[in-house]
Computed example of a mutant assay.
Amino acid sequence: MVVPKAKVPDVLQLSGSSGGHLGAKRTLLKIRERFYWVHCRDDVEDWCHKCTSCAAVKGPQIRSRDALKLYNVGAPWERIAIDVAGPFPESESGNKYFMVVMDYFTKWPEVFAIPNQEASTVADKLVHEVFCLHELD
Rank of each mutant, 00 (worst) to 15 (best):
H21K: 03
H21N: 03
L22W: 10
L22C: 06
L22H: 11
L22D: 08
G23F: 05
G23W: 05
G23Q: 06
G23Y: 08
G23T: 04
G23R: 02
G23D: 10
A24V: 06
A24D: 11
A24F: 06
A24I: 07
A24S: 14
R26C: 02
R26Y: 08
T27L: 01
T27W: 02
L28A: 09
L29F: 13
L29R: 14
K30D: 12
K30M: 13
K30I: 09
I31T: 02
R32T: 12
R32V: 10
R32H: 09
R32M: 12
E33F: 08
E33A: 10
E33M: 13
R34G: 02
R34P: 02
F35D: 00
F35K: 02
F35L: 01
Y36K: 03
Y36Q: 07
Y36S: 02
W37C: 01
W37V: 00
V38R: 12
V38W: 09
H39L: 07
H39V: 07
H39R: 13
C40W: 04
C40H: 06
C40F: 05
C40Y: 03
R41N: 10
R41L: 09
D42L: 06
D42S: 08
D42C: 04
D42R: 13
D43M: 10
D43P: 02
V44R: 01
D46N: 09
D46I: 06
W47T: 04
W47F: 14
W47M: 04
C48V: 08
C48K: 01
C48H: 03
H49F: 12
H49S: 13
K50V: 11
C51I: 04
T52P: 02
T52H: 12
T52Y: 11
S53R: 14
S53G: 07
C54T: 07
A55Q: 15
A55I: 14
A55Y: 09
A55K: 15
A56P: 01
A56D: 15
A56K: 15
